[in-house]
Amino acid sequence: MTAAGFLDIATPGLMTSVQDLGRFGAQALGMPVAGATDPIALRLVNLVVGNPENTAALEIGYLGPGFTVAADNVRVAFGGAAKLMLQPADGSDARALKPWRSVVLKRGDRLTIGAIEDASVAYLAVQGGFALPPFMGSYSTYMRSGLGGFEGRALKAGDRLPLALGAAPEGEERELADSIDYGSGPIRVVLGPQEDRFTAKGIETFLSAAYTVTKEADRMGLRLDGETVEHTRGADIASEGLVTGSIQIPGNGKPIILMADRQTTGGYTKIATVISADLPRVGRMKPGDALTFQAISVAEAEAIRRAQEQGIRRLIEGIRTALPDVWLDHNALYTVNLISGAVDAPSGHWR
């Protein structure tokens, strides 16, 4: 695909990569699904900017990038909570932009995205997406193997990210009307498939103890710290298939929640699997976050997921035309004489 313009990356952020909803159908070949760790945010921010839900966007980890527009113009939207500062190319005052609202950036404009305030990830969607080749049916980046996305890696300073559109289509700006409800309380799981490899005490510990996300947390998985979970006869099993949300308990007894870039097979016992409705909430967690687990049935998990999708559809239906941005250009204000005269109140004479 030929680039119609570029985003010139000045600062890459801590971990910024191209992701869509994932690479499905290739796990038998050892290829992980990858994709967004918060698929709800990816879907919604794409729709705000006018894209199909599965369009590849930038997944931003912890600290956002800064880039300059090298195209006639481009429409973008940021899905998350962070300080967004736009420095216009015309030299007018820098101004803050709103998240979950589309905006057209012009050639030479620079956007800087600050630290993610409420989660480990956020997303920047670009109308039309990026002019990148798909790999095995997806644009997601699997960084451990250097495949997909932009050169198979996270962005770095000096990159030129190619745009599919060189100019934004005419149209009104849009915004998300309501906030996303990711839920609260314990992370819900379905026990198994190796539930029998844990003692009754071990399962009780897993479901009652409080755990903390450690610094060993990335797109592959979250290592947790807390009470150890007791096995019946060791942690090792013959390698078998894994799914996103599998919770392995290795020999040290500390849970590991497997995430988007997880391996496709593994040889540690798995005590439970995070239900699909709670995976976006887990995907947003950062080191230091606390969590507990609650066991539910498969039927309950399916009902929760259906209810969650109904809530997402309501958010989608509520996407609305955005009110115009209003801001003061102080440079213009200070260089224009806004007073042409004054009245001497006692005399009534103009001077």
Rank of each mutant, 00 (worst) to 15 (best):
G5F: 07
F6Y: 15
D8R: 11
A10L: 14
T16I: 01
D20L: 10
L29Y: 10
V33A: 04
A34V: 13
R43W: 06
V45Q: 03
V48N: 06
G50Y: 11
E53C: 12
T55L: 07
T55S: 12
A56F: 12
A56M: 11
A56L: 05
E59A: 06
I60W: 02
I60V: 08
I60A: 04
F67L: 05
A71H: 04
V74P: 00
A77C: 11
F78V: 05
G80E: 10
L84E: 01
L86T: 12
Q87C: 02
P88K: 10
A89L: 02
G91L: 04
S92L: 03
A94W: 05
K98G: 00
S102Y: 04
L111N: 00
T112A: 14
T112N: 09
A115I: 15
A115T: 15
I116L: 05
D118A: 14
D118H: 13
V126K: 00
Q127N: 09
F130P: 02
L132D: 05
L132I: 09
P134C: 05
T141H: 06
M143H: 13
S145K: 13
L147Y: 11
E151P: 03
D159M: 01
L161I: 10
A164L: 09
L165G: 03
P169L: 04
P169V: 11
G171A: 03
E173Y: 11
E173G: 14
R174E: 06
L176C: 03
A177G: 05
D178C: 00
D181P: 02
G183R: 02
G183C: 03
V190N: 00
Q194G: 09
D196W: 04
T205Y: 01
F206N: 02
L207I: 03
Y211Q: 10
Y211T: 13
V213H: 01
K215D: 13
K215E: 14
A217F: 10
R219E: 05
R219D: 07
M220P: 09
L222D: 07
R223T: 10
L224C: 09
G226M: 05
G226D: 07
T228F: 01
E230K: 04
I237D: 13
G241L: 05
L242N: 06
S246F: 06
I247S: 05
Q248E: 11
I249E: 03
P250G: 12
G253W: 07
G253K: 08
I256N: 01
M259D: 03
A260S: 14
D261Q: 06
Q263T: 08
Q263C: 04
T265D: 06
T269N: 09
K270Y: 07
A272C: 08
A272D: 11
T273V: 15
V274G: 04
A277I: 04
A277C: 08
P280W: 04
R281H: 02
K286S: 12
G288H: 03
F293V: 07
E302H: 12
E302T: 07
E302A: 13
E302V: 11
I304N: 05
R306H: 10
Q308K: 13
Q308I: 10
E309N: 15
E309Q: 14
G311V: 02
E317S: 15
G318T: 12
I319M: 00
R320V: 06
A322F: 09
L323E: 15
H330E: 14
I339C: 14
S340C: 09
S340R: 13
S340F: 10
V343K: 03
S347P: 08
S347H: 11
H349K: 15
